[in-house]
Design a protein around this nucleic acid. Structure first.
Length: 745
DNA sequence: GGGGGAAGGACCA
DNA sequence: TTCCTGGTCCTTCCCCC
């Protein structure tokens, strides 16, 4: 009947319907497009599953509204007080001193393909396959064809659509070119995917003030399209995006052969985008703002081939936030948008007005996040070198019901995963099997082992048991799969309960404690021991005690050569390590291989007091089995990585694992950070922070700020001083996190 | 009551 | 005919100390 079909319609529209949140989709015939999408999807298993999921979300919303109806005025008053208190604290901690930039290549994969195949420029085209598209060009977007849409539906919308298969090697190469330019503005920039990155250009801008014009002058060179197209840089973007308003005014006065860029942030970013276009013939968009969350929103504002800046003033931020739809903020997705919409919250201003009720309806983490958004706050510090938490591989295929086939596929996945793990020298304790049946229902089953593993056999041993349980227990036999995946997590190198900031302080404190005055410049490396909580120490102890003798015997002692100064400061990976036992150089960069060698050596002799080495003492090993995998162990804190020149890892992480999608990422962090909230929370207790390098008490209780200060000190003077005498003693930091409370729907 | 594991989901590119 | 992949974080439940 009427009501049902209307309900069905709205259900469909919110999950399946065209999402014109993104740029380049203005003025489409939305109804017609949605009708085609609906007709193509209807009745499919995928569609049925989407309906089911939508129903669940609706129930969640109803539950939330029922709860809201019971909230008393008194509760609201109390909540309002809490909100105001936290607001005041957040406001006090607001930082407006940084200039953050988010850069995003325009329709990246499609643009690369069009650049390399000019015939495509005239046609509606998308990159991907019949089952999934990664991105589409301007012409295709006019038909409603967009990223994350299956190709066969796109073909219904636009029968002339040309679908080009993915060519990741090419995108990677272009991405590398672009990253070289990023590095000129922020050597520590954070790549989020092949086509996107965050930069902190504060330092660059400071230097730039003193640059002569010559350093800000760029020649407008002919690109490889010269001759075919004519005035290359001018015509390139319009080919991608015909009527883009921001495409043309990018290069005013272009008839000269030279462009001089100014010294302010907008000029610097314009220069960066200019250089990207000169180098790659591709355009990028950028956002400039006082924090990462805002920068991200800004980069979308004048897309494509444009940029937008929010000045570093509170009022400018608040003005910008007012009418901003919450959906535009990274982290607010389809479901959260719908839940908030049910509370009449569309814009960030409305989000701010309803914080009291939101604090009662959502969990602590959620409403703290909402509050930050409504105040226009975000991360002002790019966290580099975040450690990977898991690694996985999964595959979709045509229906598979034969169990023999399923086992052999499982083994294949384990084989691939083991290879990837070993490439990064990772070992994990938790194995997760992921299954999606032909009705698109997803199930995950996990098992945690006593010790960390990384070989195909070990992973398969666990995964096949999990698979067997599913094959045996599934209710309508047999198990009919369309996807299988295997994941390894709980890496022995990570301790997620400990904030990274503490690592540096703890490390320095302990290192200085153990550096005796009579010793030559030698460092006993005993990270973290003092700062680990009692319970975690005892649990670690327990783990190492329960480990079988043979495995304990295999725990390698990690010894890393600390080269001479120029070596230590060079940006290359060490080419070889010297064994501290036999003093032979080993021609390997693989720490596991190296550790194995040392183990062999140690069987016969004691460790020599080699003055050029850092070593991990036996006592540490006894309480911290964490170190059994030296290559990515606990002490790979940002500081340590820089110290040993091993931070190359970061770009590898981002380069190697690429997915099928628009910007296929192994993004390591979400764009927003809860740092500020965590630090300012009433339940947090922080002792006085004294920089262990300069020994000065710091006028802040924000660990992020403090860490930055320590980093800067270290950069300037640490390396030498540390190796000769050890650092002065620093204060250790204790952070007690409050427990999240609140209703969740 | 807190920590850790398991299962499931939101969200990101 | 055909609706991806690989990652992070959060929440809820449960068990154990």
């Amino acid at each position: 009947n009427m009501a049902d079909s209307n309900e069905g319609q709205s259900v469909l529209l919110s999950r399946i319907a065209l999402n014109d949140n993104k740029a380049g989709m203005e003025g489409l015939d939305r109804d017609k497009i949605n009708k085609i999408i609906l007709e193509t999807s209807k009745g499919s298993r995928f569609y049925e599953n989407e309906l089911k999921k939508e129903h669940q979300v609706n129930q969640r919303i109803e539950k939330m509204l029922r709860y809201k109806a019971k909230v008393t005025e008194q509760q609201i008053q109390k909540a309002q007080g809490e909100v105001e208190k936290l607001t005041a604290e957040l406001e006090r901690g607001r930082e407006l001193g940084r200039v953050m930039v988010h850069v995003d290549m325009d329709a990246f994969y499609a643009a690369v393909e069009m650049r390399d195949c000019p015939e495509l420029k005239e046609k509606p085209m998308a990159v991907g396959s019949m089952s999934m598209l990664s991105t589409s060009n301007y012409h295709a977007r006019r038909y409603g064809v967009r990223a994350a849409m299956p190709g066969f539906i796109a073909k219904k919308l636009c029968p002339n659509l040309v679908i080009v298969p993915l060519n990741f090697d090419k995108y990677r190469a272009v991405s590398e070119q672009v990253r070289e330019i990023f590095a000129d503005y922020d050597p520590q920039f954070l790549p989020m995917s092949l086509d996107e990155a965050y930069l902190d250009i504060t330092d660059h801008l400071e230097q730039r003030q003193h640059w002569p014009e010559s350093m800000r002058t760029y020649h407008i060179s002919g690109t490889k399209t010269e001759g075919e197209v004519g005035a290359e840089t001018d015509t390139l973007s319009p080919v991608l995006f015909e009527d883009s308003p921001s495409a043309s005014p990018t290069f005013p006065g272009v008839d000269g052969k030279v462009e001089v860029f100014g010294t302010n942030s907008e000029e610097a970013v314009r220069e960066m985008r200019f250089r990207i276009e000169q180098k790659t013939s591709l355009t990028a968009s950028a956002g400039i703002a006082p924090n990462m969350m805002l920068a991200k929103v800004c980069s979308d504002k004048n897309k494509p081939n444009g940029q937008y800046r929010i000045p570093n003033e509170r009022q400018a931020v608040m003005d910008f936030i007012q009418d901003l739809p919450v959906r535009k903020v990274s982290g607010i997705g389809k479901v959260t948008e719908k839940m908030l919409a049910a509370l009449d919250i569309i814009s960030c201003a409305q989000l701010g007005q309803q914080m009291a009720i939101l604090s009662l309806l959502f969990s602590e983490t959620s409403w703290h996040h909402f509050l930050q958004i409504s105040l226009g706050l975000g991360s002002t510090h790019i966290e580099r070198d975040a450690e990977r938490k898991s690694m996985s591989t999964e595959r979709t295929f045509g229906e598979m019901s034969d169990s023999e086939e399923q086992y052999s596929l499982c083994r294949e996945l384990c084989h691939d995963l083991a290879k990837d793990l070993q490439k990064e020298g990772l070992k994990g304790k938790t194995i997760t099997l992921k299954l999606k049946n032909v009705n698109f229902e997803v199930k995950t089953k996990a098992f945690t082992l006593q010790c960390a593993i990384c070989t195909e056999e070990e992973i398969f041993a666990a995964a096949k048991d999990l698979l067997k349980a599913e094959i045996d227990n599934v209710s309508p036999q047999p198990l009919r799969l369309r996807l299988m995946g295997v994941r390894v997590s709980s890496f022995i190198s990570t301790d997620t309960k400990r904030p990274q900031q503490k690592s540096i302080v703890g490390f320095l404190k302990i290192a200085s404690d153990s550096s005796s005055s009579t010793q030559p410049p030698r460092v006993l490396f005993r990270p973290e021991e003092g700062s680990v909580s009692d319970s975690s120490v005892s649990s670690l102890k327990q783990q190492s005690e329960t480990r079988s003798p043979s495995i304990v015997g295999e725990i390698p002692r990690l010894v890393i050569k600390l080269g001479n100064e120029s070596e230590a400061q060079s940006s290359d990976m060490p080419q070889c390590f010297t064994c501290p036992v036999c003093f032979n150089e080993m021609k390997t960069t693989d720490l596991r291989v190296f550790n194995q060698h040392i183990d062999e050596c140690l069987k016969g002799s004691a460790v020599d007091d080699g003055s050029r080495f850092m070593d991990v003492g036996q006592d540490v090993l006894a309480t911290k089995p964490v170190f059994e995998d030296g290559a990515d162990s606990d002490f790979m804190t940002p500081f340590f990585k820089r110290f040993t020149n091993m931070n190359k890892r970061r770009s590898l992480v981002h380069d190697e694992a690429i997915s099928v999608t628009d910007s296929g990422s192994k993004a390591l962090k979400q764009t927003f950070s809860h740092d500020a909230v965590i630090m300012k929370d009433a339940n947090v207790k922080i002792s006085t922070l004294t920089c262990p390098v300069c020994n000065q008490a710091q006028d802040t209780d924000d660990l992020t700020l403090f860490n930055r200060h320590v980093d800067m000190c270290l950069n300037q003077e640490m390396l030498l001083e540390f190796r000769e005498a050890g650092p002065p003693c620093g204060q250790s930091v204790t952070v007690l996190l409050g427990k999240a409370k609140g209703q969740c729907f």
